[in-house]
Design a binder for these strands. Structure first.
Lengths: 194, 194
DNA sequence: GACTTTGTTGAGCGATCGCTCAATTGAGCA
DNA sequence: TGCTCAATTGAGCGATCGCTCAACAAAGTC
């Protein structure tokens, strides 16, 4: 393991923190999880980050990367395709970890200012990305969505709500049922398409 | 402080636990919070409950009491009045603690089987109560809701999702905006009434 | 009053957490 | 080669947690 310059080590720790919180969640993740993932001593982490700052930064990066991949980065694809893919993949097993992070960031934001700020910014980013997508489909004539900024909030809310309901072990709401309800809600917000 | 018989002490501890989790949240609450609320020694709690069992039981009681008060217990009131009151009070400041408990139970349910079961049962109860209300309004001709069991899931989901968005400190979504979005969603599920 | 049963006490155990810090290592440079 | 200093180590501090358990106190029973 070669010795690294400060900036490189910082990004390396950040990426390890992303892996750890995706695997264990924001609340269960510890500084030792991150340092042992990298194979370095426990004391090294505090040399570069406070735990709360690292945790919030890792959360931001994970969420922003997901939004970019599923919405922002697909600005050249047809709006209905992007939205349809969003609905189809919303409650897949791979998405669980991401929804869990959202719930945890919301809750822990009550006592962690950095996490609250990260969650607030991520929410803004998500709302903006989805609003743009809805507006694009409207102006392209793909669907009818006269108030994309409003519809975006409702879709995000039902998405988060259904995700939370699915996450409960032994939940009475299956993933398929959640996808069904999300599709109906999205269709309503976008006229009859998607 | 007179010595209590076992059953009385159990309910007394349960009620104290309800107060504590409403005030501090499920994750931040400790056994010492409960015993100091009652003014008894720390060791007494473990004589009656394990902490995880007490926490799950207290969560169940708080949530069930709220559902009964706002929905189930108002079966003699007009359905549109009940639903309207539900929307109006959904994101009041007093409701914050309850929504926080929902989010925490969902998240902690991943590693706490008792809490997962309590959350699952509470979800069932909520879905049943809201389904009944929607069906009653439909059969009374107050509104049109042909599939109350389905609509109930969507309303619960958007309710939980909007609540989570409001809970983030510095959230871009205000309580008034959340109430607005909930009202629109409910109106859509119930035809044009409510 | 002697004895059993049950409720209650509170110091403290064992585990976990983020973080500290003196000691050590090694790359860059004269 | 000797020097400097940032990078790294890892034992351990201090705080917190749920929970244990020997000791004690008050009813109930005879």
């Amino acid at each position: 393991m070669p010795r690294l310059k400060g900036a490189d080590r910082r990004t390396q720790i950040l990426e390890a923190a992303e892996r750890v919180i995706l695997h264990k969640g924001l609340a269960a993740a510890t500084t030792r999880d991150v340092t042992s993932d990298l194979g370095v001593a426990a004391g090294l982490l505090a040399h570069y980050f406070s735990w709360s700052a690292l945790r919030a930064a890792a959360f931001s990066r994970v969420v922003v990367a997901d939004i970019d991949q599923s919405v922002t980065g697909r600005s050249r694809d047809a709006p209905d395709t992007v939205l349809s893919d969003l609905v189809d993949g919303a409650f897949s097993a791979e998405a669980d970890a991401l929804w869990r992070l959202w719930l945890e960031a919301t809750e822990m934001g009550a006592s962690d200012a950095l996490l609250a700020e990260a969650a607030s910014e991520a929410t803004d980013r998500w709302h903006g990305a989805l609003s743009d997508l809805l507006a694009r489909g409207h102006s392209d004539g793909v669907w009818t969505c006269p108030t994309p900024h409003e519809s975006s909030w409702r879709i995000i809310a039902i998405l988060l709500g259904l995700a939370g309901l699915c996450l409960i072990p032994g939940s009475p709401l299956s993933r398929d049922a959640a996808t069904h309800h999300l599709r109906i809600a999205v269709r309503h917000e976008c006229g009859l398409s998607a």
